[in-house]
Structure formats: structure tokens, C-alpha cells
Design a protein around this nucleic acid. Structure first.
Lengths: 226, 226
DNA sequence: AAAAGCATATTAGTATGGTAGTATACAAAC
DNA sequence: GTTTGTATACTACCATACTAATATGCTTTT
């Protein structure tokens, strides 16, 4: 069911609920299509409905929840169109960002990249695919950070919830995990060796226009999809 | 001060307030740095604080408002860093989108593009620069729509509020309006003639990495900037 | 005159209650 | 057995009230 995390100091109830719900939606603990109500969440967190409402407002804005007035609220279904859009944005932006990274990347972050990759390998061995997902995102965030574009990464992650969710689903089944990490190594190698000539090719492989696995997932888990 | 618009049928109070505030912030009727409170907006719209709060939650999430607990809320200042990020995103994505448009763009939308350009010219003559701003955005939206990427346009517009605001400020002063419309003509011409070879060049001119006008605006209107 | 303390006002965050729209269950009519 | 009408339950939207944190103004002390 739902995972709970300790509330950070100085965070409002609203923010805490928002972050907790969001994490649970992305990690598929709250399933696409699942009905949740302000009342049940308020009871779960032992608070009034107000901060729950306000958290819901944010999650609706991000496309993670869908509210039906007077009827109820559901976790939004994964929409393959949105997944395609997210992939287009990521592919386009990451070609540009990786090119910048190959041209100029702070040495101080090399170690973090390498550490991240080592932990990714470890996650494969330990079959901890949720942790792998988080490291995957940290990997990309590091690259954006090295190019002074970290906020862009945060922004596109925020609007790409469906893409993130389908990737969690895919990873949780262990599909393609080895290949993903290999591609991360290739990306990092381009940065280390300042090789701009292969940027497009590597990104196209990492974020292809079509991913047959996604279509298969839609068939296997049709109740999760729009 | 603030412009009010008729409320659309079937829209909730919350949505109406959100849209109205947002529009007034983007068009600079609500000035960067200006203090607004839940109470004063609630009084203005003759409603309780609750839908105002919920609208504020969304606007805070989009970076248009900044809330200081127990102290108050201000319209956010324009942050040139965010402007740069927005420009990077737009430049990167629009090279890709314009390339797609040159390869394949629906004939049905040609007329809309041409109409839009004609109206832009009219706005220059009539010095209606706010309308020009809207047409400018419609122009780009049309291109994204022709490439089946309209939602991406909506998403990046949502997160690029600072860039939009500084453009409103610039246009409202009549700066560079003729050049902007010329560039739109060039962009459209690339689409009509399916000329992919000049895409990067035209977009780089339209969304350059640096815009000296923005730095000057920061000097002239320093109270609007972070 | 300047600093410290206290009272009051202001504002956002949260709790509780009322209303409107919808769904469901049950009874009555056909 | 099926359809229609009514009552009740459920849920989000909005209103009102309470609480906590902060700012401001005034008074007292140094």
C-alpha cells in the first residue's frame, strides 16, 4: 500500500502530504486508476481535509491526480501520448545538455558520476530496481547540474510524471536494466573523453522515439493505461 | 490595477481566480514584488479565502507567487536565471519542432499562420503590443500544434513565466517589435518552403543566448528583478 | 534618546461545517 | 421482472473559525 516517510522539519503539513503522495504515485504504490479521497488521506495522516485538498491541487496540476467534482479523485492513468511527449522533450534537451557537458564539465562532479554508476551496477546485482530508478534520475540530474541547468531537470521531471511512472513499472519488472546502465556508462564516457561527435547517437539509443517495451507494458497492465 | 474577466461557465471559483491572477501577473498588471494577500483577493472577488488559497497554491507552484508563512505573499520577482533557462529550453525544443514543421506541416494550418502574421503587422501599426504578445504566443502554439506537440507548448509556457513576463515588459515598451515580427515571417517562410537548412540559424536569431535588451530592462526596472 | 518589553494587528496554515452534485439502495408502480 | 421515484450516503467546493508566527505601535526602563 502506501509508504510513509518522516516529515522534514519546518515543512508544512501540506507539503509533507504532497511529497508523500507524489512519491507513492511515481513509485506505483498508489496505482494508476486507484480511487483516493480527501477524507481517507486526511484520516491516514491524522489531519483535517484542508492541507490534503491543497496537496491534491498541486498533484492535479502536475497531472498525477484527476479530480471529479462531487464524485471523487483518482490517481491518473498513464497516458502513452504524454510519455511520447516527455521522451521528445528529454531527447531534445538532453542532446543539447550532453553536448554542453562534453564541451565543459566540472572535474569535481566526475567522482559523483562514477560513484553513481558503481551504485547502479550494485543495484542490478542486488535486484534493487527502485533504487536503480532513483540513481538513474540522480545520474541525469548530475549532468544537468554540471551544465548549470539543474532546475531544468527538476522542471521536466515534474511535468514528465507519466514517463517516470512507466519507467518505474518497466524497471520493477527487471526489463532492460542491464542495457540502461550500459547506456549510462556510454553517456558518462562521452563526458569524460569530451567526445561530442557521438552525442546524438547515444541519446537516440537511450531515449528512442519508440520503445516496444512500453507497448507491451500497456498490454500487460492495461488497467494502468488511458 | 487588476483586470477582471467574465467567469467561464462551469468553471470553479478557484479556477477563475487562478486564471485571472495568472493573466494579471503575466501581463504585469500585478507587478513583480507587489504584495497581495488572500484576504484582499477574497474581498475583491467576494468569496471566502479558501478558493483564493487554492489558486495561490497553484501560482506558487508555477513560481508566479512567493508565500511567506504568517507574513504574506508577493508576486515573484523576475529572475534572469530563469529567463535564461527558459530561453535555453525554448531554443532547444523549437529547433527540433521547427525542423519537424519544415518536414511535415498540415496545409490546413497555413492559413492560420498567415492570418496570425497579418494580425501581428496590424498590431505594430496600432501599437497594440499586448495583443502582439498574445499573437506571438499563438504563432508558436500553432507551430507546435502542427507538429502534434501542442501540449508541450502549453507545458513550457507554464513553467516559463519569467521569460513571458520580461517579454511583455519589453514589448510594452515597444522595444524590438518590428524585428520580432520579421523573425516570425522568416520562421513561417521556412515552414512554407520546407527549408530545413536554415532552422538553427533562424531560431538562434529569434531566441538568442543573450539579449542585451533584457539586461537593460533589469537596470531600468530593477525593482521588478531578483 | 535608545533599547527592551508588552499589547495589538495582520497574515498564512489548519480545522470544522454547510452546500451542491452525484451515486447507490430501496420501495412503489407497472 | 423491470422501470421509476425517493431517500440516503458520499465527495468535492466553498465558507467560517481557530491557531501560530510575525510585524507594528506604544509604553516603560535605562
Amino acid at each position: 500500500m502506501m509508504l510513509l516517510f518522516p516529515q522534514r522539519k519546518n515543512s508544512s503539513t501540506r507539503d509533507y502530504i504532497y511529497e508523500t503522495l507524489k512519491k507513492n504515485i511515481i513509485l506505483l504504490h498508489l496505482k494508476p486508476g486507484q480511487v483516493i479521497t480527501e477524507n481517507e488521506i486526511a484520516e491516514l495522516f491524522c489531519v483535517s481535509r484542508t492541507p490534503v485538498r491543497e496537496a491534491f491541487v498541486r498533484l492535479v496540476q502536475e497531472g498525477l491526480l484527476e479530480t471529479y467534482p462531487q464524485k471523487g479523485t483518482t490517481v491518473s492513468l498513464i497516458d502513452l501520448e504524454r510519455v511520447d511527449e516527455a521522451r521528445f522533450m528529454r531527447r531534445t534537451l538532453e542532446k543539447a545538455v550532453l553536448q554542453m557537458a562534453c564541451n565543459n564539465f566540472p572535474q569535481e562532479l566526475f567522482f559523483e558520476l562514477r560513484s553513481n554508476l558503481a551504485l547502479q551496477e550494485l543495484c542490478i546485482q542486488e535486484k534493487n530496481f527502485i533504487k536503480l530508478f532513483e540513481l538513474d534520475e540522480d545520474f541525469h540530474r548530475l549532468i544537468y547540474r554540471g551544465c548549470r541547468k539543474e532546475r531544468i531537470w527538476e522542471l521536466i521531471s515534474q511535468i514528465n510524471a507519466d514517463f517516470r511512472r512507466i519507467r518505474v513499472l518497466k524497471l520493477s519488472l527487471g526489463i532492460g536494466v542491464g542495457e540502461v546502465v550500459k547506456q549510462h556508462h556510454r553517456i558518462a564516457e562521452l563526458i569524460f573523453s569530451k567526445d561530442v561527435t557521438n552525442v546524438d547517437k547515444v541519446i537516440e539509443e537511450h531515449l528512442p522515439q519508440n520503445d516496444p517495451d512500453f507497448e507491451n507494458l500497456q498490454k500487460l497492465y492495461s488497467q494502468y493505461f488511458k
